[in-house]
Amino acid sequence: MSLFNVFNVAGSGMAAQSTRLNTVASNLANADSVSATPEGAYRAREPLFATVRRSLDGKAPDAGSDGVRVLGIAESQAAIPSRYEPGNPLADADGNVYASNVNPVDELVNMISASRSYQNNVEVMNSTRQLMQKTLDLGK
């Protein structure tokens, strides 16, 4: 693997973690939302990732470089909680409203993990840049 490939891998990791952070932000923003129906309630979302690897002949089947790519965003299938709030304008005939299935504690853990992964990829890029710079300085 050349040093230029390291930039591709770290860059794709940064893009993936950025998607993860945006998903966490969306989940946290909708954590306290309610709906009149279980179908209309906000469901927690999570990005799905896949590894991209070069084949033995040096050609990646889909992206042209090693790294990670985002396959899509999946919705949680966890149960939607209901609360009895007859005074809420969104309450159904029984007085229930349906909350999101976002767990704020899990989302905060995901946010910390994604942030640290992003920072690690930045460090990989900086270290690679420094190694390349030192290599160029040897030729002076």
Rank of each mutant, 00 (worst) to 15 (best):
D106I: 04
P81W: 10
N110Q: 10
A63R: 13
A25H: 09
R116D: 00
N5C: 00
N96W: 11
S18P: 00
A74Y: 08
A74F: 06
M125S: 09
E85K: 06
Q77S: 15
F49C: 10
V97P: 05
V105F: 09
L136P: 05
V109N: 02
G13M: 07
T51F: 11
V6A: 14
R20H: 05
S18C: 00
N120G: 15
Y98M: 10
A36W: 01
S35Q: 06
R45S: 14
E123P: 01
Y84G: 12
V124K: 05
E85G: 02
F49N: 12
V68F: 11
G64V: 13
P89K: 01
S35F: 11
A41N: 02
N121A: 10
P38F: 11
R43P: 07
P38K: 14
I73D: 13
Q17W: 04
A91N: 05
V70R: 11
D106L: 04
S18L: 06
V34D: 03
A44S: 15
M132S: 08
A93I: 09
R53M: 07
T37N: 05
S26V: 07
N30H: 14
L56K: 14
F7P: 01
A60T: 10
A60D: 15
A99M: 14
P86F: 12
R54G: 04
L21R: 03
N5Y: 01
F7L: 14
V52S: 13
V109E: 00
N101Q: 11
M125Q: 07
V124W: 02
M14F: 04
Y42R: 06
L56I: 08
R45E: 15
V105Q: 03
A91E: 02
P38H: 07
D94C: 06
P86M: 10
N101D: 07
Q133H: 07
R116K: 11
G58P: 08
L90S: 01
V122N: 04
N8D: 13
V24Y: 00
P38N: 09
A74G: 07
R83K: 11
A91P: 04
S76V: 07
K134H: 08
L131S: 13
N8C: 06
N22W: 00
K59C: 05
S76M: 08
D32R: 09
R53N: 08
A25I: 06
G40Y: 08
S76H: 10
F49W: 10
L108D: 02
G58S: 08
M111C: 01
Q77K: 15
N121E: 04
R43G: 06
T135W: 05
F7S: 03
M14A: 06
E123C: 03
F49Q: 13
V102M: 02
M132F: 12
Y118W: 14
A60R: 09
G40R: 09
T23H: 01
E123Y: 08
Q77L: 08
A10V: 04
V9G: 00
E39M: 10
S65A: 14
E85W: 10
Y42N: 05
S35Y: 07
V105Y: 05
S117M: 12
R43C: 07
A25F: 01
Q17A: 14
A16M: 05
Q77H: 12
A114V: 00
G87T: 12
Q77F: 04
Y118D: 06
R20Y: 01
D57H: 09
S115N: 13
N8A: 14
L48A: 12
D94S: 13
S76Q: 09
V34T: 15
Q130N: 09
A91I: 12
A36Q: 01
Q77I: 03
N96P: 02
G64H: 09
R116P: 04
Q119E: 15
